[in-house]
Amino acid sequence: MKASIPLGMAETTAAAVDELAVRRAKTGDLEALERLYRAYEGTVYGLARRICSTPEEAEEVLQETFLEVCRSIRLFRGSAGGSLTAWIKRVAASKALIRIRYEKYRETEELEEERSWSGHLDGDVGLRMDLETALARLPETTRAVVWLHDVEGYTHEEIAELMDKTVSFSKSQLSRAHARLRTWLGEED
C-alpha cells in the first residue's frame, strides 16, 4: 500500500506534462498516454477516493477516467497545464458521480438522509470525530458536494450540472453537510 502524499504534489507532477506530450498523446501514442496517466494518476485517484466510499470503487473510477481521457484526448482543445488538469478532473468527477448515482441503494439512502437532517441522529450527541472520519461518514453525494465545492473550487452551478441536479440541491447539501460536520467534530457550543 502506498502512503498518503500532501495534496499539492499531484498538481506539481501534472504540470510536468508538456505540450509535446499532449500532442503525441492525441495521436494515440501509448508512451505519451502512459506519461499522462503517470502525471495525473494521483490527482484522479485522490478526487475519486474522496467521492467514492471504497478504494476499489475509486480504482475503477481511475481506470474509467483514463480510458475516457485516452479515447477523447484528440478532442481536447486546451493546452497542457491548467486546462488539461481541469478537463481530466472534470472527467474524473463525472465518472465518480455516475458510479455513485447508479448504486442501487441510492434512493433509500437519500430518503434516510432527508429525514435525518432535521436533527441529531441517535448517538450523535457528544460525538467527536476527526475530520477524516467525519467526512467519510457523510453520504456519498453530500461528500461529493463538499469536496467539489470547498476543496476543488467548483461552483454550485458546475456541481448541479455534473450531478444533473439543481443549484439549490447543491447549496442545501453543502449547508447540511457543514451542519453535520460541525456536530460530529464537536464544534457545537
Partner: peptide, 18 residues
C-alpha cells in the same frame, strides 16, 4: 479539508487501461 492528505492508488492501473 484542503489540508487533508491525498490518497494514492494502491495499485497501478495503467496496465489494465493499456
Amino acid at each position: 479539508l484542503k489540508a487533508l492528505p491525498a490518497h494514492r492508488a494502491p495499485r497501478d492501473r495503467w496496465p489494465v487501461v493499456r
